[in-house]
Write a protein that binds this DNA or RNA. Structure first.
Lengths: 229, 229
DNA sequence: ATAGTTTGCGTGTTTTTTACACTAACTATC
DNA sequence: GATAGTTAGTGTAAAAAACACGCAAACTAT
């Protein structure tokens, strides 16, 4: 059995695109780099893979260390591998992405970075490495995914109104949807669990509060159901 | 600027799932391994990444060397990275997949393998490494993709009949479609270019021959068109 | 009580999907 | 060269889904 060291070995980083939705706009979490290369520039949080951890474990560790976020549900996005993408040498980047509600988490700037911050996807700063490509790929994937799977519920409070959900969809897809048809479609889909409660206190009719019915959703998926907006 | 060698480096292989459709069934190209680990078992064609080539260039080189196939349109599938997936040590696998017509290509068994052969996806042999997972992921991806993008045309002759196209879709998706509705839908989509010719010689009405109109398809995609079966 | 606002429900219209019938065109055979 | 057998191509009606709205109900502010 031939030894692995007979073959040249690249370095591998795990980079994570964290999308955030604050009720108004879609943002992404970026780190300001303290070290070369690209010191002072912004990048998606990432770090080198250790040899004894899975890709997902690595992503979790890196996010905890650099941003204070942990236990996120991450989905693999793409592996970037242009030979010149890192000036230090050959570095592959296995990327992951997820969606969170920025108001539900607390950020901690790890000691490797100058700063950690949210940027609206419509106003991104200059990015280091090939992270512009990474973000573009992530946004495309998110848009594609959101139309046929109920992602996005993580971004809302556990109890939310249909209008809040609609705002989220409009924001991610960058479209405008008819309020009444959205209401009909989403309630008919069977994945919203009515709580029977209302949100009072606003200066108009109190909307009903719903929860995402994951059990029901999983059951529907099993029997061939396809979520569609 | 810190050196890359401060971090442990895994090995990286590129593995390719080559689907083939011969007019009847969906198959996949497998190699019988000559060397340890998993000598004598079947795996998807793959090899180690060199440091000066892109991931796609690597895939192309590996396929040429091991199967004789070159210049295929490959799409990235997933990166597998369980720490125990290779007994020799930490090896990531960046996987690619594509679809070809086995009758249009000639296979060459590289000197690293005992044999190269097609296997129907419904009758797979025991597979080395985690290639069972790789194939399962690839089939799922292919099925998802084929429903909203016109992949599959590569598997047919440049000129094909609508029935041939339908057979292909039924085979990949493993469903049965109504002949007349399929005909209507696919001709209405505007991505088939009529050739005005017919295929004679069979013992029934001669069907019209079509070509895939890639120009028209690209134009449609640009203006927001979504192909759907 | 009333005005202002947003929610929830209803309804008619258009488009898409589905199911199925029938005729046309080709080959093989007598 | 007529006829049977087979698959190709077209049509059409019903069902379902998508779309475009109207309107009353429910809440707050005044």
């Amino acid at each position: 059995m031939q030894s692995l060291s007979a073959y040249p070995q690249p370095s591998v980083t795990i980079d994570c695109v964290i999308f955030g939705y604050d009720g108004e706009k879609l943002s992404v979490l970026l780190l300001n780099r303290k070290e070369e290369p690209y010191a002072g520039m912004w990048t998606v949080p990432g770090g080198f893979l250790y040899l004894d951890e899975t890709l997902e474990e690595s992503a979790d560790r890196i996010l905890r260390t650099k941003t204070g976020l942990g236990s996120l549900y991450l989905e693999q996005l793409f592996t970037f591998g242009r030979p010149d993408r890192d000036p230090r040498g050959r570095v592959l980047s296995v990327t992951y992405y997820t969606l969170i509600n920025p108001e539900h988490v607390e950020l901690t700037t790890g000691k490797m970075a100058n700063d950690v911050n949210w940027f609206p996807v419509s106003q991104l700063p200059a990015l280091g490495f090939d992270h512009k490509d990474v973000l573009q790929t992530a946004i495309q994937r998110l848009q594609a995914k959101v139309t046929y799977q109920p992602v996005g519920f993580e971004l809302l409070n556990p109890q939310f109104t249909i209008s809040e959900l609609q705002d989220l969809y409009e924001c991610i897809l960058n479209v405008r949807l008819d309020r009444r048809n959205f209401h009909k479609k989403i309630t008919a889909s069977g994945i919203l669990k009515p709580t029977g409660q209302k949100r009072l206190g606003e200066k108009n009719r109190a909307p009903e509060l719903f929860e995402f019915d994951r059990e029901r959703y999983d059951a529907l998926v099993k029997s061939g159901f396809q979520f569609k907006i």
